[in-house]
Design a protein around this nucleic acid. Structure first.
Length: 354
DNA sequence: ACCCAGGGCCACT
DNA sequence: AGTGGCCATGGG
């Protein structure tokens, strides 16, 4: 099963992977990208403008078409950059092929809480560790992916990543799975060798989350509460009949049907958030402990596809100071400021690497 | 050893 | 409303 799409140069897997919006993509030995998302694994390859995806046409239409944001015309958006803004036009040209993926909002919430004060390799390791400890195995070798998984199993060529990175691929954990996590080190419990926390049982010394551990937990509690009540924490329930899936109990009892119900309830809660206008959604996110202005903007942009959200991190601060010393006219790029931000971010990091 | 990383919280003005 | 110290971990 394979789907091929002519991207006309408007999609670059390598550039997307390097754009700091996704942290779980992995380039395989044969040049394909292993993409875990939405409880499955996709292998994607791109050669001379042709994108090949290891899925059926039906799965492409149902999942990956939206994931890759195929129905947004990036060339048209870039054509709207003011002609006098030479820097942005150049950044957009260099960044041609970058797209804003429509990733799972829940995964973006946790991932960008983790991201604070970490560099990108450290974020990748931390997220992967979290998935390995709390997520369910995804079994990529069972997918119809061809040579990539087979070659990965053999593992004959020199591994670029640590041995941990080669271990079985796992799904991003559910809110309930994260709530059930314990970490001795983050809790200040000394390692006595026999009371092992979830991470130690998996062979890690700690969760690597550091001071972010309570933030991740708070976010999982927030999301779990949203899933159970069908509404955001602290908000009165809506009288106007936004449909919510009733959940019998907040405690996961572990049966398969409960997990299916949880998944449905999570989808429903996320659907509720997706319906909120930008400013309301932003305030909701800012109410979560560990989510500030920048992380909220990342969740908005990468999780909720609010293309006008404009995350400013240390790279962006440098780029803005250097190229827009008189100030950045954010409003003149609406409603695509976030896409411009992505071009600037990639450009700034490329400059910094030299 | 040192500095930095897709920051946020809190106490202080 | 704005500012500075502090937070824990891993990479270069």
């Amino acid at each position: 099963m394979m789907v091929t799409i002519d991207t006309r140069g408007e999609l670059s897997l390598a550039k997307i992977a390097d754009s700091g919006q996704t942290f779980r993509w992995k380039e395989m030995e044969d040049g394909s990208w292993r993409i875990p998302a939405f409880h499955r694994v996709l292998y994607a390859r791109e050669e001379s403008g042709i994108l090949s995806l290891s899925c059926t046409q039906e799965e492409y239409e149902r999942i990956w078409r939206a994931y890759f944001d195929m129905d947004t015309d990036y060339a048209k958006i870039c054509a709207g950059i003011p002609r006098e803004d030479a820097y942005m036009r150049r950044a957009a040209e260099m960044g041609r092929g970058i797209r804003i993926l429509r990733q799972d909002p829940w995964e973006m919430l946790i991932t960008f809480i983790i991201s604070q004060r970490k560099n990108i390799p450290a974020i990748k390791l931390c997220v992967e560790k979290l998935c390995r400890v709390a997520g369910k195995p995804l079994c990529p070798e069972d997918t119809e992916s061809g040579s990539a998984a087979a070659e990965d199993k053999k593992g004959m060529s020199a591994p670029v990543d640590s041995a941990r990175f080669q271990e079985p691929l796992c799904d991003f954990p559910s809110p309930e799975a994260i709530l059930s996590l314990t970490c001795n080190k983050a809790s200040g419990i000394p390692e006595d060798g026999h009371t092992l926390c979830a991470f130690q049982k998996a062979g890690y010394s700690s969760c690597s989350l550091g001071y972010r551990m309570p933030y991740v937990r708070a976010a999982a509690e927030w999301m779990h509460n949203l899933v159970v009540t069908g509404n955001a924490a602290g908000q009165p329930s809506e009288p106007d009949g936004i449909s919510t899936v009733p959940v019998q109990s907040g405690l996961p009892s572990g049966t398969d049907s409960d997990e299916v119900d949880e998944e449905k309830a999570l989808r429903n809660a996320i659907h509720h958030l997706q319906a909120l206008p930008d400013d309301v959604l932003r305030e909701e996110l800012l109410g979560i402990r560990g989510v500030g202005v920048k992380v909220a903007a990342c969740i908005m942009l990468f999780g909720f596809h609010r293309t006008n959200a404009f995350p400013v991190d240390v790279w962006m601060k440098r780029a803005l100071a250097e190229h827009y010393p008189e100030g950045f006219a954010l409003a003149s790029y609406a409603p695509y400021a976030g896409i411009m931000q992505q071009y600037m971010f990639v450009e700034a990091r490329a400059e910094g690497r030299k």
